[in-house]
């Protein structure tokens, strides 16, 4: 479970997030929307241990992640979390398979045969099994995003944080990627996704980030309950 308690964040004396309390159940599929520059990515980054909040706590499985030491936080990011970004995030000098295996190396060990096989199966799952030896520049935008999703899954994380993963993709590719996330969620992985694609709000629970606060979307009960316990497996 992810719990945000009284989260606040300022950039240059301007509040981006204020007193956000949020609880996301295991295996939930949560979509966060809001206007550009409204703090959605910041919220995701705080949740994922990428940037420190000015106020409040983030608890993942009851562990306050911002009280962890740097190596512990890095290990948590490595093992429990998977990130998919809105920009092309593959390392251009590495082949697709090596890109997918990268988090294993950052976890402190060299990838072994099992890891390679698992990476191959992930690439097959996201539909680019034939591209494992290709370089990112040889892939389309959609294929790059699929490879990034495979990379986010390589350490079998329990949470995927996706920041507008379909923002720059055409509609049909967007639908395929969203379907992929849905499948991943069905396997019990919690997904928190920042998106403008609210056509897919039905996949899970949607929240609107507005005026530094979270609201249910469409308007309804408080975000805590909206994205709460009842929000499992996208239902």
């Amino acid at each position: 479970m992810i719990r945000l308690e009284n989260i606040g964040k300022r950039y240059q004396r301007s509040d981006v997030l204020q007193r956000i309390d949020w609880r996301i159940a295991d295996s939930a599929f949560v979509l966060v929307t809001g206007r550009s520059g409204g703090g959605k990515t910041t919220l995701l980054s705080i949740m994922g241990g990428l940037t420190r909040p000015d106020e409040g706590r983030v608890l993942i499985d009851d562990v306050d992640i911002w009280r962890l030491s740097e190596p512990e936080l890095a290990a948590l990011r490595n093992r429990k979390l998977g990130f998919v970004f809105q920009f092309p995030s593959l390392i251009p000098t590495l082949r697709v398979l090596d890109n997918v295996l990268l988090p294993i190396a950052f976890g402190g060990r060299s990838p072994n045969r099992e890891d390679r096989e698992f990476a191959g199966s992930l690439l097959a799952m996201v539909g680019i099994a034939d591209k494992e030896k290709a370089y990112p520049s040889q892939l389309s935008g959609g294929q790059q995003r699929r490879a990034a999703i495979a990379r986010a899954l390589i350490n079998r994380p329990s949470i995927i944080l996706a920041d507008e993963p379909t923002g720059d993709l055409d509609e049909s590719t967007e639908a395929e990627i969203m379907s992929l996330f849905q499948n991943i969620n069905r396997q019990g992985v919690t997904i928190v996704m920042v998106t403008h694609a609210l056509d897919y709000a039905a996949l899970g629970t949607a929240c609107l980030l507005k005026n530094q606060q979270l609201f249910p979307y469409p308007a309804g009960p408080s975000p805590e309950s909206a994205a709460g316990e009842e929000s499992r497996h996208g239902e």
Partner: peptide, 9 residues
């Protein structure tokens, strides 16, 4: 990105 993937400082 490396850090996000779990690379330590």
């Amino acid at each position: 990105l490396f850090r996000a993937m779990g690379a330590r400082r």
